[in-house]
Amino acid sequence: MKQSKVWAWIVFGLGALYFLIPLIATIDFSLKIRKAGYTFDAYSAVFADPRFQQTFGYSLLIGLCTIVVGLVIVVPAAYYVRLRAPHLRPVIEFVTLLPLIIPAIVLVFGYIRLYNSSSFLPLTNSNLGTAILLTFAYVALGLPYMYRAVDTGLRTIDVQTLTEAATILGANQLTVIAHVIFPNIIIAVLSGAFLTLAIVIGEFTVASLLGVQVFGVYMQNIGANRAYEPAALSIISFVFTWGAMAMIQLLSRFAPKTAARTD
């Protein structure tokens, strides 16, 4: 027993070193912009750059829009499958996994071909249209995580009983979803939302090919002609992503402790 614990700690230590050494090296490099010693000048330059403020703010806005659109699509769909059509669950799960199988570059080229200037709906001709395409592309990329988070939340509550009780009291389906189901799965919804936001912040391929200046594109452009600022941006992005993961872990402590329902 003691020997197995020793080997477990050795494996854990090797895994931790595998992830921590590159991170520490990146932090160390980002602080050496001056030869005199460690300094936060690279971080100051990044935060003072108007392009950083613009692209990061735009990515946050697109991320929030993506979360809203994703919830409007996923919550009713997952609720309907859970309540009325459980036989469709394998099909829905397969469809929601497609964004993990189909490369993002295929998705964006399909958008460009369908919505270019010569199509019946030339969305790529305007900033608003491009933002709409970008939002729906991110909804697709975040679909596997959002759907599974919502589906997990629905498994922790008695959807059938809650729906019947609300219906007896005169609530329609929209009211049931908005005022009964949604508040009971809010922790799961927030978990999916944070995962989606982390994906949007770091995404590059779709935004680059659509010609949109988002945070991921800004990071790539900075990395092409500077040395220390890209390292600082990597740490900032890392902190943001792990902050989102920490929020998921924190919120999971407040999740309902009832056993998951699989029927």
Rank of each mutant, 00 (worst) to 15 (best):
M1C: 07
K2Q: 13
K5D: 14
A8Q: 06
A8S: 07
W9A: 11
W9H: 07
V11A: 10
V11I: 14
G13E: 05
A16Q: 10
Y18I: 15
F19G: 09
L20P: 05
L20A: 15
I21H: 03
L23G: 09
I24C: 11
A25C: 09
T26G: 12
F29V: 14
L31M: 11
K32L: 14
I33W: 04
Y38D: 08
Y38I: 12
Y43G: 09
R51S: 15
Q54E: 15
T55C: 15
T55L: 07
S59W: 08
S59I: 09
S59E: 10
L60N: 02
L60E: 00
C65Q: 04
T66P: 00
I67E: 01
G70Y: 00
G70C: 04
V72Y: 01
V74T: 10
V75F: 01
L83H: 05
R84W: 15
H87S: 09
H87C: 11
L88C: 12
L88I: 09
V91E: 02
V95K: 02
L97P: 00
L100D: 04
I101F: 14
I102F: 13
P103C: 14
A104D: 14
A104F: 09
A104G: 14
I105A: 11
F109Q: 06
I112W: 05
R113C: 13
N116A: 13
F120S: 12
L123W: 02
L123I: 08
L123P: 01
S126G: 10
N127D: 10
N127K: 08
T130N: 06
L134I: 07
T135G: 02
T135E: 03
Y138F: 14
Y138Q: 10
V139M: 09
L141E: 08
L141M: 14
L143F: 14
P144M: 03
A149N: 13
T156K: 01
I157W: 01
I157L: 01
D158G: 10
T163Y: 02
T163R: 04
G170N: 07
A171R: 03
T175N: 05
I177N: 01
I181K: 03
I181A: 04
F182C: 07
I185W: 02
I186K: 05
I186Q: 05
A188C: 07
L190E: 00
L190S: 08
G192H: 02
L195I: 13
A198K: 04
V200L: 06
I201W: 10
E203H: 11
F204W: 06
T205Q: 09
T205G: 07
V206S: 08
A207K: 00
S208L: 09
L209G: 00
L210I: 06
Q213V: 05
V214Y: 00
F215C: 05
F215N: 00
G216K: 03
Y218A: 04
M219E: 09
Q220C: 11
G223D: 07
G223R: 08
A227E: 08
Y228R: 06
E229A: 13
A232E: 04
L233K: 03
I235Y: 06
I236K: 04
V239T: 12
V239C: 12
F240R: 01
F240H: 05
T241Y: 12
M245Y: 14
Q249M: 11
Q249R: 08
L251S: 10
L251G: 09
S252N: 10
R253Q: 13
R253F: 12
K257I: 03
T258D: 14
A259L: 14
A259I: 13
A260M: 13
T262P: 00
T262S: 12
D263P: 06
